[in-house]
Simulated scan of single mutants.
Amino acid sequence: MQEEQKTIRKRQVPAVTRAVAILRQLAREEEPVGVNPLARSLDLIPSTCLHILRALQDEGLVAFDPETKRYSIGLGILPLARSALQRNTFATLVQPRLDRLSEDFGVTGIATQLTQPGHMVVIAMSQSSIPFRLQVDLGSRFPALISATGRCFAAFNREKDEQLRKDFEDLSWDHPPAYEDWLTEVSQARDKGYAVDAGTYISGVTVIAVPLFDAGGRMARSLVAIGISERIQTTGADRVADAMLALRDQMSSTQMTMEG
């Protein structure tokens, strides 16, 4: 007798969706923002936006300045983020590998995880001991298509996506690559298993990314090395990438042993 397949129906909860959108927008803003500009940016009715902001403020997730009448992301978000990171077994597993990567090659090593919608978040990081290094913050979010990580993401997750060009054109680069050149680099990432961004995202900075895949073969996380281009050129980007691929394979074997 054939089992009846149950379809899981998602029920829309507009208030929650809007609250999350507000928090994400406030996290992106460099300065506190007023209700009306915030509502316009999210296509919300100002009164609705204000009610949600006040509820989030009561929970400590949003901060309000009574003098300027502007809102910003609140410190109450930090315990939630810290708890999520502490419970992330991948972050625990990858940390000693990032420390080794940073020490061996004088780079900033980070691990990212895919979040929705279409962003990567930094869940672990390690700084090198060299005097000049790049600052990256734990919990930073950036578009999934940007830099070397983005080339990998496009190669393994969005190969036949008609929206790809439009999303590419919305990205911000120091030296924007031509779309056709970028597609060629996406194809190279698919062939090599890693991607290199030599100064197009940030001038004078080289970013190397190695994808990590989920059970369905889609990129869900990445290992990233960020360093001064001159130093990376001296070491060899391919050499750094090979070490990162070895670390990824090592982690995969460790995870399989732990799960077994």
Score class of each variant (00 low, 15 high):
Gln2Asp: 13
Gln5Glu: 15
Arg18Phe: 00
Arg18Trp: 00
Arg24Glu: 10
Glu29Phe: 06
Pro37Ala: 11
Arg40Ile: 06
Ser47Trp: 00
Leu50Gly: 00
Leu50Ile: 00
His51Gly: 03
Arg54Asn: 07
Ala55Lys: 12
Gln57Pro: 02
Ala63Phe: 10
Glu67His: 14
Lys69Cys: 08
Ser72Ile: 13
Leu75Arg: 14
Leu78Asp: 14
Leu85Asn: 06
Arg100Pro: 09
Ala111Phe: 05
Gln113Met: 11
Gln116Ile: 10
Pro117Ser: 11
Pro117Arg: 08
Val121Asp: 00
Ala124Gln: 05
Arg133Cys: 00
Ile146Glu: 06
Arg151Met: 15
Ala155Asp: 13
Ala155Glu: 14
Phe156Ile: 12
Asp161Ser: 07
Arg165Phe: 01
Lys166Asn: 07
Asp167Thr: 07
Asp170Lys: 14
His175Thr: 02
Asp191Met: 14
Asp191Cys: 03
Asp191Asn: 11
Lys192Met: 12
Ala195Asp: 03
Asp197Gly: 04
Ala198Phe: 00
Thr200Ser: 09
Tyr201Asn: 01
Ser203Ala: 10
Thr206Ile: 03
Ile208Tyr: 01
Val210Ala: 04
Pro211Trp: 03
Leu212Met: 15
Gly216Glu: 11
Met219Leu: 09
Ala220Met: 03
Leu223Trp: 05
Leu223Gln: 06
Leu223Val: 03
Val224Gly: 06
Ile228Met: 05
Glu230Lys: 08
Thr235Pro: 01
Asp242Ser: 14
Ala243His: 12
Leu245Cys: 08
Leu245Val: 12
Met251Pro: 01
Thr254Ile: 14
Gln255Trp: 03
Met256Val: 15
Met256Arg: 15
